[in-house]
Design a protein around this nucleic acid. Structure first.
Lengths: 345, 345
DNA sequence: ACCACCTTTGCAAACGTTTGCTATTATAAT
DNA sequence: ATTATAATAGCAAACGTTTGCAAAGGTGGT
């Protein structure tokens, strides 16, 4: 029999595994003396329970899966950190899956994670076909989306109000005197992109500015697509002029900025740029990119809390939770203010 | 008996669990017809193996623990991403522990991870007392350090050459005409800090510049300590003058920059700064902080590869692996070049 | 001296797999 | 018809726990 196991120690003591187990778990109600004997033996062998065996028996792994497109982005890193912070005291650990923005990898990971019997799933999906996720729901494993609103029932979601995010950006540009505003939107097959676009549109129409479809370009959240979209906008600038552009993802923002630079245009003198999810360096001495931001830390904290209530009460809540947090604007130096000309620079 | 299990399906087919198991794992050698029957039944019930049970039986969880101080830092995020990328094809998943730079949390996590029977451990320790880690070594669980050189035997390490990092920084400053160079070093109880300091010293002495101890300050890698150290340096500047400072961590660099700004001094005109691990925004249109960098992606890739060979061959290699990667300088706009005055700005 | 009851501990099944060995049956060789 | 051989499938133990139930032993009351 393997050393270091409950059974082994029990046999050595002439006791049963049950007794030792109960002592280990603080459920022992018997003789104080034997309790001490057991405790000593545990100490002596420096017994360490096997969580895998425990998991099997309890059918709970105390593990939360986090599936996201790119852990190296500060945005996701911060969310993960906050989730961890929230759930670690309850003994849960995080198992991390980076999908590299690939739908196929996401599906594969979801399958594996289901096999591994994670207790809960946090998902920033890039492919909310949602089929791979339905197994989780069917088995009452809590699922929380952190990036967009799921199409299936049974999934909670904690996101920002993406429509408002679009509005904030456009409102700010309007307040700076811009009226010809272009935008680069990520995929609209998810609510995320669609809502940001909706916010853009409604802010315009609220201010009686007619929307110009040739000022709306679409990308896939990645750098190259932002570059390409910006090029198209610039190429068509004679016909569809604009003074500012609202780019709706971090990577696409970098792409757009690069495209602008490649044409030897200046930001913000020639074109104003407002980005998304840009994490400017903490050293605020220097130039910053104006950006719409999400409160990642609050998102993460909320996800953690929600997960814990789901997991503890072990009741799937009657209603899917929907928490919408506030996006906010972080002013930088990439938007020109026509209202107070020449003051900013 | 629980539905969805091997046993259940076996019973329904009038077969034994063994047979079904063997089909599932492609180890079945029997009658083609029964194989098909089993396959159909598996399909029909959409059978999903329970990895927890498998892990218990195989005593291998296909899980790699990654323990680090702060996953929200791009530096660690990138390393994690690359490790994941390297090992995911082999079926390994990452379990993530963020220690929030606390030695106690690190120890706690290491204990838990050992209980959870992870197959390997990647550790960026902040407390290489190493005691919590010795259990892993004793049980032939591969351990790789990614931040400093372990004191214990049996641990591999993949780091940059930290001495060279110090030399690179100082050499660059010297080449720009600086001779009075201060430095802010993280804890020297780890090799990381000690080596960077050694590099700083040797670069000075190689150039026949006498080291001035009052230009060497110590911090704990965090922002506040960088701020404080910089203040001390500035307060003492009459007695110990300097034109440049080499700060040896990302957060301390931000702290130092803030201290400089708070005194209304200009970077680089009044003081040149060279940081560490600074991830300047990808939009290289803008001002950047001059910094020593580590090739995170290569570190991650190497860690992944090393882990896989350890895990696959299941042999603890005779010798502890030591891989030293090259740090590199990323030039920015925070170092003044006295050699070609007024050209850079 | 008997019964009732409480205290202390153990038995055995269960969690869901994998796998070495054996049993059964069919096939072929003599 | 007998035996050797191969093909097929199952038994049962193992992985290391947890836990409902039962058994053993002890105590005290009558």
């Amino acid at each position: 029999m393997n050393k270091g196991t409950l059974k082994y120690i029990a046999k050595e003591l002439g006791l049963s595994a049950s007794t030792v187990s109960r002592v280990v778990n603080g459920k022992y109600e018997g003789n104080e003396k034997t309790k001490q004997r057991v405790l000593e033996a545990l100490e002596k062998h420096s017994y360490i329970p096997n969580e895998v065996a425990r998991s099997l028996q309890k059918s709970s792994t105390e593990t939360i899966a986090v599936v996201l497109p790119d852990i190296s982005e500060t945005f996701f890193g911060t969310i993960v950190k906050e989730i961890e912070n929230e759930v670690s005291d309850s003994g849960y650990m995080l198992i991390l899956a980076d999908t590299h923005e690939k739908a196929e990898k996401e599906r594969k990971y979801l399958d594996i994670l289901y096999k591994r019997r994670v207790d809960a799933l946090v998902l920033a999906t890039i492919d909310s076909n949602g089929d791979a996720v339905s197994k989780f729901i069917a088995n009452d494993i809590p699922v929380v989306f952190i990036d967009n609103i799921p199409k299936l029932d049974g999934i909670s979601a904690i996101t920002i109000d993406n429509k408002k995010a679009g509005q904030i950006a456009v409102d700010y540009l309007l307040s700076c005197g811009h009226t010809q505003i272009a935008t680069i939107i990520g995929s609209t097959s998810e609510t995320t992109g669609a809502d940001r676009l909706a916010g853009y549109c409604s802010a315009l129409s609220d201010n009686n500015i007619e929307k110009n479809d040739s000022l709306i370009k679409f990308g896939d959240y990645k750098l190259d697509s932002g570059y390409k979209a910006m090029c198209e906008l610039l190429d068509n600038r004679d016909k569809a002029h604009f003074t500012a552009v609202f780019v709706t993802s971090e990577q696409m923002t970098y792409g757009a900025l690069r495209a602008i630079r490649d044409r030897n245009l200046n930001v913000p003198d020639d074109i104003s740029v407002i980005g998304f999810d840009i994490h400017n360096l903490k050293d605020d001495r220097r130039q910053m990119i104006t950006t719409v931001r999400q409160p990642e830390d609050i998102i993460g904290k909320n996800v953690g809390e929600l997960l814990l209530t789901h997991l503890r009460e072990n009741d799937t809540p009657k209603e899917d939770t929907r928490i919408f947090l506030e996006p906010f604007l972080q002013k930088g130096d990439t938007v020109k203010n026509f209202k107070k000309e020449n003051i900013l620079f």
